[in-house]
Amino acid sequence: MRNEEDCSKIHRYLFSDMYLSDKAIELSKKATIKRFADRNKDEFYHRYINWKRKENEIIIFTLYAYADLKINKEFDCIFNINDPDEFVFEKFTLTQSIYEGWAPTDTVDNGHKNLLVFKFENEIPKILFKLHKEETHGDTRPKDHIKLGFCNQKDFEAIANGLKKYHLLREKYGTEYWKYEDEEIEE
């Protein structure tokens, strides 16, 4: 179990490279129903199965969470991982988590992938629609696709600086970039 406070500020973000269309959401729900045919169905199962997406909600697929998080966690920043100068500040709440894409739960577990439902105070920011829109219950992402990060403003400067350094080191040293992480970078 890893708490958010135990995670370095530069790594305190969730990241995603796709969101689900309404068609893909229905396919996901059908797959969850099938997998739970002989299992106990708790409140999180019923919440997801009965959920109808509202205009200010989106479901995204996140990769490898940085810490253990509980649903109803609030965020307020979305940014482009390859270009952290592209970002928006907008309040939103994580309202549901579907562990590894098939088991609704009340947590996002460190190191795992999840489908997450985000609810925005206002409309869904346009930056989110830069993600790949998945229409299936599979993975049809193109080879080159955008990744977005989700964090809180209080951590964003450290995250953005860390990503900029990462990109500069990757450009300079390729896959051996990690050997030079302690190096000072001049911009």
Rank of each mutant, 00 (worst) to 15 (best):
D83E: 06
K179V: 13
E55N: 15
I58M: 01
F87W: 00
R47A: 15
L116R: 09
I25H: 01
D22Q: 13
S21F: 02
D85Y: 02
E4S: 11
L131M: 04
I10P: 10
R35M: 14
L163C: 02
S8K: 15
G101W: 08
T95D: 02
G138P: 07
W102P: 11
E123C: 11
E57V: 05
N56S: 01
N161V: 09
R2G: 10
I25Y: 02
E184L: 11
E5W: 15
H167A: 10
K9T: 14
E157A: 04
D83K: 03
I10R: 15
H137G: 15
A67D: 05
K172Y: 11
Y180I: 02
I59N: 09
G174H: 13
N56W: 02
N56K: 09
E187R: 04
N40P: 13
D6M: 01
S28F: 00
V117M: 07
R2F: 01
Y19N: 15
K70F: 03
K23D: 15
I71L: 13
F87C: 03
I127E: 01
S97H: 04
T62R: 01
A65D: 05
T175Y: 15
K70Y: 04
E43F: 00
N82K: 14
K41Q: 13
D17L: 11
E55Y: 02
Y173V: 00
F87Q: 00
E74K: 11
F92L: 09
R170S: 06
E184W: 07
T95G: 14
D42N: 03
I98G: 01
K130A: 06
S28K: 01
G162H: 05
K119F: 05
A67R: 14
Y166M: 04
D76C: 01
N161I: 00
Y180T: 04
V117G: 08
H137C: 05
N152G: 05
N110M: 03
R170N: 08
T136N: 06
K73E: 13
